[in-house]
Every structure is written in C-alpha cells, then in structure tokens.
C-alpha cells in the first residue's frame, strides 16, 4: 500500500539577513494511511513548517511533499485550496473558530464551502457535535465556550468532510492538563476509529506518547524512527 504522505528530500529555508536560515534539510519520510504520527522538536525547529508544507500553505525550497499520488507543492493555488477542503482537516492551537458563526455553523462551514447538500452537512455536523459532547451547545457562539469546548468543536469541524488526513498544530497547547487530555483522547479516538491519518505537532510528551510514531526535528534534520 503506498504511503499517504511522503517527504522527498524536502528542504526549507527563510531569508534572514545575508545568509538564509535553514529550517529543514533534505527531510525524507513516509507516513502510512491510518497512522498517528507526532512531530516534536524545540521552538522554532520547523515542526509547524513541516505541517504547513503538507497543508500546501507553504512551499519547500527544494524537494517535494506528496499526498497520495500528488506533489502538493506542484499544484496550483486553487488545486491546493480544493485539496485542503476535500482531503484535510485542521485543528489549531488557538482553535480558530469563526467568531461570527454559531457552533453548528462553524462545523458545517467546510462542507458548505465544498458545495455539499446543506441538509446532509447539518446532519453530519450534528452527529459529530454529539460525538464530541457539544450538541447541546450547537446554537452557541464560540466566545460562550471554554477553550476545551472550542477545541472539541474544531475537531468536529476538522472531520466534517471526512478527510483521510487530519493536521493538528499543538492541539492541546492552549489548554489545561485536563482539557488537553480530553481533547487528545477525542482526537485520537475519532481519527483512529475512522482509519484516518493524524499528523500532529506537539511539545507535550503525554500527547506524543499516544502516537504510533514520533518524529523529531533536530538542527533541521527530520529524525524518523523505524
């Protein structure tokens, strides 16, 4: 079975003064479908950059990032938008819920952007909210929810399109231990149960311990355990 994600000698550097700052040096790795992979590393080590490269919101300086049979970095901006919409779900450190949309509408939004039937989308969103225990808060605006609750809404939103891949950037980074544990449990359970790939960036050992594999970035090198 071909890997879902493949980093093929991916390098990334940012201009900084006269000499560019290298974040990734010829990183190569493969992640299989259904795998839960954590990426760890020090602040500024390039963890989030790796995630952004997979999402197609940043481009490698050299090398390719493959999602299935497509090199994400070689796609047009529009194709990347559609790829994110249809095949990826996102969970952010600061939740990034749309403040002007109610909880249910936040979850429905990606499906609606994809042009799905509104009734189906609402049914699925309600089911997902039920799963994360927030159906009762469906009509609330995000600012009425706690941080943990907001992140649970974000998980539901990430799964509304039933994407094969979920990208999570420090999903518990802005939560207390208890809320973080609840969120992580939900995220793991919902992605594993559906056979999805979860690629998450984290500082936390506890969170990383839940992953099938932990990759680390040290001095720009991606260290991949076999």
């Amino acid at each position: 079975m071909p890997p879902l994600i493949r980093f093929d000698k991916v390098s990334k550097s940012y201009p900084e003064g006269d000499a560019p700052r290298v974040v990734l040096r010829e990183a190569s790795a493969e992640i299989a479908a259904g795998e839960v992979v954590a990426i760890r590393g020090r602040s500024g080590s390039g963890k989030s950059t790796l995630l952004n490269l997979v999402a197609g919101i940043d481009s490698p300086t050299s090398g390719d990032v493959w999602l299935g049979t497509e090199a994400v970095n070689r796609l047009s901006p529009r194709a990347r938008t559609l790829l994110r919409r249809d095949r990826m779900g996102f969970v952010f450190q600061f939740f990034n819920l749309i403040p002007t949309l109610r909880v249910l509408e936040n979850v429905v939004l990606p499906a609606e952007l994809a042009g799905r039937d509104p009734r189906d989308a609402h049914e699925r969103a309600s089911a997902l909210l039920d799963r994360v225990g927030l159906l009762a808060r469906a009509e609330a605006f995000p600012d009425r929810l706690s941080g943990g609750e907001q992140q649970r809404v974000a998980i539901a939103r990430a799964l509304i399109q039933d994407p094969p891949l979920v990208l999570a950037d420090e999903p518990t980074g802005n939560l207390d231990d208890h809320a973080g544990a609840v969120v992580m449990e939900l995220l793991e359970e919902m992605t594993r149960a559906a056979g999805k790939t979860l690629l998450l960036v984290t500082h936390s050992r506890e969170v990383a311990a839940r992953a099938d594999r932990v990759m680390t970035i040290e001095d720009g090198h991606l260290v991949v355990p076999h």
Binding site: I57, T81, L82, R84, R85, T100, L109
Partner: peptide, 16 residues
C-alpha cells in the same frame, strides 16, 4: 486576518 486565513485553510477560495 486570522479569520480569513482560517476560511482559506478550510477551503474558501480567494474569490469567495
């Protein structure tokens, strides 16, 4: 800007 970034990340096109 963060809202628009999120919308774009969730699949909204620049035209939208």
């Amino acid at each position: 800007r963060t809202v628009f970034g999120t919308l774009r990340l969730l699949g909204a096109t620049p035209g939208q």
